[in-house]
Design a protein around this nucleic acid. Structure first.
Lengths: 358, 358
DNA sequence: CGATGTCATGACATCGGTGTCATAAATGAA
DNA sequence: TTCATTTATGACACCGATGTCATGACATCG
């Protein structure tokens, strides 16, 4: 592999001049520059980032640590859309001329120290710490000395973080449902211990309050999906309970649950959306777009969160954080309206976008 | 950040001795070793991979280049399960004490050269080139000088690659259906230009041949999903056509299509699986497990493919490829049987696993 | 015309590890 | 006891960039 010395020799200049051509940090004669560029091309020269890192003490690497990717196998597959997160982050990081180093903990917390060690060896300039679902975490003490931004999680120490606006998302969804003529809105929630659950229920209430609609508590039920720990289909019971309260629409905690509700409702001979509207959360497009009818869903803005997180991290590294900047940032997102929600009030027009022609 | 010199000074030895303690490449006195280890701990020493790479000329990095992650936005989201691929690869690579450097082309082919440049600067020892779906590719000429393994794709130059066994997967599925008493098996295929389409149709035929069942060609239809380019729901027509041939089960090209077929069948009042069995392909668990009833699906073994590819690449790098080793390797996988397939022949017992209690 | 400044370039040291070789002490064999 | 090994350690150079400083050739100014 050609080095800067080979290029220098071929171009008949000193290595330092080659360096100057590459970095443009000092004027170089036009003729010299061309000679050097030709030599680089001829030798297929690629500068060594290792040598650069060593001399400049800057690796140009950003570490991203994620557990969710593999958590998938062990627990639930809630984490899949994380790739959007990677995407969003990578776009921003790439623009800053840095490289993203991704490490997957494989869902095993005990592997994290090893991964961090690798990051340190590569002298990453900062770390994006990604959780598979909105939650509180406790950072290993060994992370305190690196610029770090948490994504989809937060800690007690107020480490900078980027979170989804769960309250706002559910508010927007329910508000939209009400505007579409729904008054009895059922809600099959996440397990109550989840951070997002409380926030979204709050959004649900705020939307009702804003429209002066009293909330019938029977409409809110925890909609547990079957899992390795819960053999039985608790969702079936939860659905049963909310149906007794006679809703016109059922909000589900996520698209997966909504997909299941589609099946359960149809087993009972309930037509979607003619007899019952359904909404999800996540806008997990692989599901939401391909269910029939298309599933209305509050967007979980992973790509935007990744980008925001990368941006914040770069500012942390560059020391250019604004003085008043809050440590915790919430990313809002719209609702993707699809055909699973029926507009009941004939006076409400033009709200239901993306109509399918059948 | 502490260097090897700091550690040496603290431990009262030479840097080289510290190096020996770390690498164990020469005997070190027990007392000395302990002193060094203590110093490393006290100073929180982490060796610099940049310095190592420079001296040893080995980066310990493997590059993975993928387009699918972002293709998602632009075309179809077929690529999502790639994360499993990353996982599988990372496990193997981690065991070899190397680090995986992942670059996402963002679905834009023109960004690939930039990514490769980054890989080169980091002196990756080899490359995993991942396609979003089973296809033929043409490698940029600049890749010829690096050890490389294609994943989910192949090229005319017979570059080593790892492919899914599409023929075998569909065969296993159809064979299983026949054993469960199905004789009229509809098949909504992928678009015909896709490599996997031909292979799977071949598997479909082989299974029929093996059981001496003639294939009614009307049962095989291309089942295009709606997409930006196809506004209309061609799947609806395709389904219409296969239903005329009176099948007892419908095989779909992928789980996404199967999900849609669930909806379309139910619109027609067809109960799954009582009146019609359904099967998918991919075993995209987020869909297959949560559809109701659970979707039977041929597994697309991404994790195994990632691991196999990493393994093959490491052997290429290490020069320990077996002489007779084929360039193209196919990874087989079983079928995940779930409740969407009805066992029709009462004599066939114990085949339908994972029964749900309702 | 000499002083000063800018442009263009090179010599040299340095970043933090590790390969090579040298050396001294301890051990074992003859 | 003496020579041959083995063990334990250090001195030194080197990997490939780039920061610092020096130098020579011109250009500009008073």
């Amino acid at each position: 592999m050609a080095t800067i010395y080979d290029v220098a020799k071929a171009a008949g200049v000193s290595p330092k001049t080659v360096s100057r051509v590459m970095n443009g940090d000092a004027p170089v004669n036009q003729a010299t520059r061309e000679a050097v560029e030709q030599a680089m091309l001829a030798l297929n020269y690629v500068p060594s980032s290792a040598a650069r890192t060593m001399r400049s003490q800057r690796s140009g690497l950003i570490g991203m640590i994620t557990g969710a990717i593999s958590t998938t196998h062990q627990f639930e597959d809630a984490g899949l859309p994380e790739i959007y997160l990677v995407q969003g982050a990578q776009r921003v990081i790439g623009q800053s001329n840095r490289t993203l180093l991704i490490a997957d903990s494989g869902g095993q917390a005990d592997r994290i120290p090893t991964l961090l060690q690798t990051f340190r060896e590569h002298r990453v300039e900062g770390i994006l710490y990604v959780a598979e679902y909105h939650r509180e975490v406790t950072l290993p003490a060994s992370l305190r000395d690196l610029p770090i931004v948490l994504v989809n999680c937060f800690d007690a120490a107020e480490t900078p973080c980027i979170l989804p606006d769960d309250e706002g998302g559910q508010f927007t969804l329910v508000d939209g449902l009400i505007r579409r003529g729904h008054q009895r809105i059922a809600y099959l929630t996440l397990p109550e211990h989840q951070v997002a659950c409380g926030l979204r229920v709050a959004g649900y209430h705020r939307a009702h309050a804003q429209h002066g609609i009293a909330v019938d508590e029977r409409l809110i039920q925890v909609g547990a999906l079957p899992s390795p720990t819960h053999e039985f289909d608790l969702l079936w019971d939860a659905l049963d309970r909310v149906l007794k309260a006679e809703p016109t629409v059922i909000c589900c905690a996520n698209d997966k649950m909504a997909m299941r509700v589609y099946g359960l409702l149809r087993d009972r001979g309930v037509a979607i959306p003619q007899q019952m509207s359904v909404a999800g959360y996540d806008d997990y497009r692989m599901i939401a777009e391909h269910l029939h009818p298309g599933l209305t869903s509050a967007v979980l803005p992973y790509a935007a969160m990744g980008a925001r997180a990368a941006d914040k991290l770069l500012r942390l590294i560059g020391g250019s954080t604004k003085p008043g900047e809050p440590n915790r940032e919430h990313v809002s997102a719209p609702v993707a309206w699809r055909d699973s929600v029926l507009t009941r009030d004939a006076n409400v027009t033009q709200l239901n976008s993306r109509r399918r022609e059948t």
